[in-house]
Each structure stands twice: as C-alpha cells, then as structure tokens.
Design a protein around this nucleic acid. Structure first.
Lengths: 187, 187
DNA sequence: GTTGCCATGTAAACTGTTACATGATTTC
DNA sequence: GAAATCATGTAACAGTTTACATGGCAAC
C-alpha cells in the first residue's frame, strides 16, 4: 500500500509524448533529443535510460519484445493505455500564472503533443488561456519596466527589454496559432 | 594539493553578478529571484544558502559582519577581488554554438552584468558574435523547417514555428542592442 | 498578543551530469 | 579487419526540490 513515486518529470513527459508519435528504442530517443531542436532536454544515457525505467515502473510505457535472431537489441518502447491517459491529463491541466513566468517551455511541449489526443475545443481553450495569461504577465512586465527602466544600468535595461520582446513573441505566436486552429476544419 | 571543486554553476554566477550591483543578505537574494522576472533561477533556501556557501568556499564572496546589537542577523554578502575576476572571466568567454542552441539564457545573464566590468570593445564583440551565431543557427532551423514542415503534425509544426519566431526575436534584439551600444558615447 | 514576514539553515529523496564500460552491427 | 555508429547500461557525484525547523522583529 506504500505510495512512493513522485509524479513524472518534464523529461518523462517529453519521452512519453514522443512515443505516442512513434515507437522508439532508448537510443532512438537519445538521437532525437540530440539532433532536433525540440527540447533543451538531455540526451545523455544517464538521463534517458533511468527515465525509461521510471516510465516502465509506472506502467506508462512497455517494451515490445522483438528479439533479433542473433542475440540482441532492437526492442522499442510503446505507450500503454495508462500512459496515454497520463499524457492527456498532463496536457489538459489548466494553465496557471507560474507556468507563464517560470516554465513556459513546458507549455509549448504540451501544445506540441496535443494533435491526436485532445478535442478541438480543448486545444482552442488552451490557446485562449495561454494568450490571456501571457497578456496579463506582459502587462505586468511592461508596467515594471516603465517604473524601473531609469534606475537600471544600461545592460540590465537591455536584458529586460529582451524579456519583454520574448513575451511579445509568445503572444504574437499564440494569436497566430489560434487563428490557424480556428481556420482548420473540425475533424 | 587536492583540487576538488567543480566550476560554479549558473546560479552561482547569477548570485555573484547580483552582489556586484548591490550587497545583499541571503534572504534578499531569495526575494530577488522570487519577485523579479530575472531568472528562472530557484529561490528556495535549499538552493540559495548552499550556493552562498560554495561561493564563500571559493573566496568569491565574503560576509560582512554587521551584528545588530540584539543578537542577530543582517549580514550581507560582498564580492571579493577574486569574485570580480571570476565574474569577468565568465562574461568574457567566447560564445560557442552550443550556447545558442542549449543555454541561450545564460548569455543574456552574462550580458546583463557586463555594465561596469567589460570594455566597450568587449561588449560590442559579444553582441557581434551573438548576432552572427544566432543568425547561423536560425538559418539551420529554417532550412530544417522547409524540409520537414510537411511531415509534421499541425501542432508540431506550430511549436516549431514558435521556436523560429523566438530566435528571430533574439536576433532582432541583438541588432538593436548593438546599435544602442554603438550610439553610446565611449566613456 | 498573535499573525505574518524577515532570516537562516538542514535532511532526505530525486534528477541529471560525467565518465566509464561493454558488445553488436554497419561501412569502408 | 578497422573504424564508426548502434545500443544499453552503471557508478560517483553534484545540485535542486520539498519539507521541516527555528527564532527575531513588525504591525495591527
């Protein structure tokens, strides 16, 4: 009855999401994180293999056993129904203000995996909430800037301006993505 | 003769940089990381206090002893000459491609602290190199996008577009910052 | 006089990094 | 047949998170 496991990490969800698009070996996952920009996530064996073990222990993925005649290793990982449920739950979480200020990258990761697993309405809701909350945060940032810009040293001010520009880009992207989804035929 | 310490972490440098602008208590540093956007860095006591201990052990900061009559605690941390030298070294490192793709936030942190510690030429060099390398990386991203966009699911494609938009913003900022610095009178 | 914030720390658990290690398969 | 790459893992270590713990001071 001991419930010991903490909830999966971002890396775990990144792997789980990838496996929903395409079954992969551990090595295959490593290569994806190494080569594609998608994710500042680590591709080292010391992070990937332990992550896969965690996912297996939680019954979120299984290893297909496809033994090559000569010895060895080619077995890929597949999501389980529980894994799919978990991924959907993770993507469906409401966006909270701290997501915007502290872990916005996670939101893009969640968005990237939504394709086949959430309804059109859920996807639109996600973007609506995203845009609203980015706008709120941006307004705060800009107000703070107006107040403090004169007191900041030049480089501090420029770095701050970069932060503002980045959030403006997030919002601009969110609006464009929303329009794109709205124009997409339902189903 | 045992040389055991690894080099300071990003958090260590963030703290060291802050202390060059203003002496602070541990608590003060925590509040800065909590409240200001500057940094996705952790503000938990379990990260800040050990970081300050590391910095002290390396002789990069010292604690002023300013005892309040009644008991206790108000002592702030100050950078040492060695700390200043270390900060300057860290800011002066050449930018490598992996900085752009994997840890670009660190570059903005380095930039934010340059004000009083690097020469005008060094600052300009930093931005020139930044812009050049962001441009190179952006070109790669765009080429990859052209090739792969049609194969990507809609959400994956939109997420990718976000990545490209973000790097375009980095470059635009870099160009503007360069112009700003160039227009600034040299001392 | 009690609530809340200032202020500092520690301990356990967990993640990730770095480096090492092994062997199979493919390519030249 | 040698070199590169596929493929999987482990061990030591360092850093962060979360939770706990303590006490002073300020405000109401």
């Amino acid at each position: 009855m001991s419930k010991k496991q903490t909830s999966p990490t971002d890396l775990d969800f990144a792997i789980l999401g990838l496996l929903h698009q395409q079954a992969e070996t551990g090595y295959g996952i490593r290569k994806i994180f190494e080569t594609t920009a998608l994710g500042n996530y680590s591709s080292s064996p010391g992070s990937i293999y332990p992550a896969l073990k965690r996912l297996q222990k939680l019954n979120l993925v299984v290893q297909e056993n496809q033994l090559t005649e000569s010895g060895a290793n080619k077995s890929r990982f597949l999501p389980t129904p529980i894994g799919t449920k978990m991924l959907i739950e993770w993507m469906s979480q409401p966006i909270v203000p701290e997501d915007i200020s502290k872990s916005i990258e996670q939101l893009f990761l969640r968005f990237a995996f939504m394709d086949n697993h959430l309804s059109r309405a859920q996807k639109l809701d996600f973007l609506l909430s995203f845009n609203e909350q980015v706008k709120t945060y941006l307004t705060e940032l800009e107000a703070y800037y107006q107040q403090e810009a004169d007191n900041l040293p030049l480089h501090g001010r420029l770095a701050f301006e970069h932060g503002i520009a980045t959030y403006r880009t997030h919002l601009k992207w969110g609006k464009k993505a929303l329009v794109t989804l709205q124009q997409t035929k339902d189903k």
